[in-house]
């Protein structure tokens, strides 16, 4: 899948590209408004990551342009600007999602996956990982064709882990994903442990392979050995 990153901060763009590339994404990076406009006019992408404050123009104009030429790329705004007006303006002009800097790359990844799923939605919306299948609409999980009962948080956690397959997820990244806006406040990520433990137990009980690995000190990893 093809992703265009329009971001003037080279290091950030490189980091994003590095993280996404190892998850079957092909990333192209441009660092100016002009180049971004050129790229989206010529090529088709599955998703465009768009920074708003570019040195030679406002990213919002690229949004407007995409709409004018009737392109249906999924667009995620990545911006340091965090005002309600700004968000509303972007959504009105056709953005699909809005991430405020700084963000975790794991969060960005699952947002992109969700966006692409929504765009390519054809009747069913099921994620499959070996013996696990997750129905996003029914919010149900099956292991080996057998339904397992997960809480809302465990369900979200499972999706987040599978989405970041083979990636080490820091506790803060998981905490922020699970608690949304409230995570800004948290300085204690101990509650993650309880959720991981419960999820692990439920998966084990239904004879699922133990994919969740603890990475010492750092966090957890969904690993398909």
């Amino acid at each position: 899948m093809k992703i265009l990153i329009v971001e003037d901060e080279q290091e950030l763009a490189k980091s994003i590209a590095a993280y996404l590339s190892s998850n079957d994404f092909v990333c192209e990076v441009v660092n100016s408004y002009k180049l971004g406009l050129e790229k989206v006019s010529i090529y088709n992408y599955d998703c465009v990551l768009l920074d708003l404050s570019l040195p030679d123009g406002n990213g919002i104009e690229i949004l407007s342009h995409l709409k004018e030429i009737h392109k249906t790329e999924g667009i995620i705004i990545i911006s340091a600007k965090e005002t309600l007006d700004n968000r509303i303006e972007c959504f009105q002009k056709g953005a699909d999602d809005y991430l405020t800097k700084p963000f975790h790359l794991s969060e960005l990844l699952v947002r992109i996956q969700a966006l692409i799923r929504r765009k390519n939605f054809q009747g069913s919306n099921v994620i499959k990982f070996n013996e696990i299948s997750i129905d996003l609409l029914a919010k149900s999980t099956q292991v080996n064709e057998k339904e397992i009962d997960l809480t809302k948080k465990e369900f979200e956690l499972l999706l987040f882990l599978i989405g970041n397959n083979n990636k080490v997820l820091s506790k803060s990244a998981i905490a922020e994903h699970l608690s949304g806006d409230m995570a800004d406040m948290l300085d204690n990520h101990d509650f993650i442990y309880a959720h991981i433990k419960n999820l692990k137990k439920k998966l084990n009980d239904s004879n699922c392979t133990d994919y969740i690995k603890t990475v010492y000190g750092l966090g957890y990893k969904w690993q398909n050995d």
């Binding site: 901060e9 980091s15 993280y19 340091a80 800097k101 700084p102 975790h104 790359l105 990475v215």
Partner: peptide, 25 residues
């Protein structure tokens, strides 16, 4: 916010490195 974003994403990438030792982690 921007340097923080770089800081954050760099760490996110760095912890993916399979060769890091326990001390480093």
């Amino acid at each position: 916010q921007t340097p923080l974003a770089i800081f954050q994403s760099t760490i996110d990438n760095l912890i993916q490195n399979p060769t890091i030792s326990q001390d480093q982690s």
